[in-house]
């Protein structure tokens, strides 16, 4: 396993002591290192200090609510954030995703389910062998360097946003349904919450599009999904 070479560090932000301990047991058994933070107010500091590879963030926290914690974390770092939520059906989830969370797991979840989500977020979308440079619209993606450039300017994308853009750019002629993107980028085998795709396409567009109202890079195909924009040479 690629992760086994260097043990990944997972920051657990959860106020429930029993669940936190259980999560740590399971994650350690799976070969992760873990750090725990029991409050919302201390979460950002804990992230700065421990520089985790991934954050598990409970949405309901004493001190500060998970959504604003998530926003602050995202402002400082592109670290993958997976929300743990007891209210998957509410707007909290969308608020969390809009605040920058990459994925969410609804309680009660199975250990396997959570581990699968964590592995997907730590794994990166693999580029096509031999092609280091991909173009999408007027952007150039460097798969080796994990950078996206418009001209000489590097766009600050989170790993998830990079993966999403790369997934579209790899097959520029294909129209992706939301379900296909969920499979490709989030690793969901069965159809899952398409809000994930909708919110992250919005976030991606706000970073890569010149005019997010008239997207040129990530183009909506009505009734089906999304496709990559035509390569442009200027």
């Amino acid at each position: 396993m690629a992760e086994a070479r260097k043990r990944s560090l997972v920051l657990i932000v959860d106020d429930d002591a029993a669940l936190s301990e259980m999560l740590q047991i399971v994650l350690r058994q799976e070969g992760f290192d873990t750090v725990h933070c029991g409050t919302g107010s201390g979460a950002v500091a804990a992230m700065r200090e421990s520089r985790p590879d991934l954050v598990l963030l409970d949405l309901m926290l004493p001190g500060r609510d998970g959504v604003s914690v998530c926003r602050d974390m995202r402002a400082e770092s592109g670290v993958p954030i997976i929300m743990l939520t007891a209210k998957s059906e509410t707007d909290d989830v969308v608020a969390g995703l809009q605040a920058g969370a990459d994925d969410y797991v609804a309680k009660p979840f199975k250990a396997k389910e959570l581990l699968a989500r964590i592995h997907t977020r730590l794994r990166r979308v693999s580029a096509l062998p031999g092609s280091d440079q991909l173009t999408i619209g007027d952007l150039v993606i460097s798969t080796a360097a994990h950078t996206v450039k418009r001209g000489s300017i590097t766009l600050p994308l989170t790993p998830l946003e990079f993966d999403l853009l790369l997934a579209l750019a790899k097959k520029p002629t294909q129209v992706f349904t939301r379900e296909a993107l969920l499979d490709e980028v989030w690793g969901y085998r069965n159809a899952a919450d398409t809000r994930l795709v909708n919110v992250h396409v919005q976030r991606l567009r706000s970073k890569v599009e010149k005019d997010p109202e008239h997207p040129q890079i990530v183009v909506t195909v009505r009734g089906i999904g999304y496709r990559a924009g035509e390569p442009q040479t200027w």
Binding site: D16, A18, L19, M22, L23, I25, V26, Q29, L84, A86, K87, K107, P108, F109, K110, A111, K112, L114
Partner: peptide
């Protein structure tokens, strides 16, 4: 139902283990 979910998650993970 929501309050039950957090302990149930712990129980479920423990049981899985």
């Amino acid at each position: 139902s929501h309050e039950l979910r957090t302990p149930l998650t712990t129980i479920k993970m423990a049981s899985d283990l």
